[in-house]
Design a protein around this nucleic acid. Structure first.
Lengths: 142, 142
DNA sequence: ATAATAGTGGGCGGTTGTGGGGGAAAGTGG
DNA sequence: CCACTTTCCCCCACAACCGCCCACTATTAT
């Protein structure tokens, strides 16, 4: 289970260290791609394959679906951590998520996300400022 | 799994370098043909044969099917990369996809596509401006 | 206190992408 | 059938980049 929030640096070569706690669970074959809300999503290969399968089943006759498919696959990159546990983020993805310098690496149970530090702050404030009744807890029905 | 987005040049001789990451998976025998939406599709031979088989089974009595068949096969070319990993794009296909100078080479899991740079930008904008609820993410159930 | 692990920086060699030359092959016209 | 032109393909060369590796520091565990 991928949990926690870490601040790591994206160095001058475009590399980010995967938190040591995540490495065993993520394995050595990962896929980085665009996430929703200008972040990057990093999946272990098994989870990615499941996702890719679903996207491949979208109808080719739908213009919108074709574009989505192109974007998702073309934005993706399979990466494996180097000897120090770092992964290289391809330039187009760095730009998409505005990553440079300090980056937030967050565990989301089944995958991890990479965020620009300010964007992450903004996201957190949005949630914290909300009433628990409507900020997500409510959907659990508890 | 063919993933990623690369900007390469179509040189004065009409050649494009296949990204090194794709070469092993694509093999040495490829087929280039028309893709949907004014791009070119490049398939490894095995995938192409499967596709060609399906198209060949379309009924010859159907006017639409005959036209499609002619277009697909007549536009196709089997190519193999030279010593530097480049493939030669036949002039009619270059024109169809408006390729010259900088070209986007995109991996789409099972095949790759070649795009004119501006057209590719347009494809991306089509998705980026949209709400995640309707742009394709929703089907993933995530 | 010592050792091990984690995160960061950077050097260096091999690979990749691009341009171009020269010979072979194929197409064209006499 | 032959000569000529054009296209194609193989090869070499070079510059930029990528990825592997080593080194240093800080933190954690023993």
């Amino acid at each position: 289970m991928l949990l926690g929030e870490f601040v790591h640096v994206l160095d001058s070569k475009g590399r980010v260290t995967v938190p040591a706690k995540f490495r065993a669970e993520l394995g050595t074959s990962l896929v980085v791609t665009r996430g929703i809300d200008r972040c990057l999503a990093v999946y272990p290969i098994s989870k990615w394959e499941q996702l890719a399968g679903q996207v491949s089943e979208l109808p080719l006759t739908d213009r919108q679906a074709r574009a989505f498919r192109r974007l998702l696959f073309a934005s993706a990159a399979d990466v494996s951590p180097d000897g120090q546990g770092r992964i290289l983020i391809p330039p187009p993805l760095r730009e998409y998520a505005h990553l440079d310098g300090e980056v937030v690496v967050a565990g989301l149970s089944t995958h991890i996300e990479l965020w620009d530090t300010e964007a992450w702050e903004g996201e957190r404030e949005r949630i914290e400022g909300m009433d628990p009744e409507i900020n997500g807890w409510a959907v659990l029905g508890i």
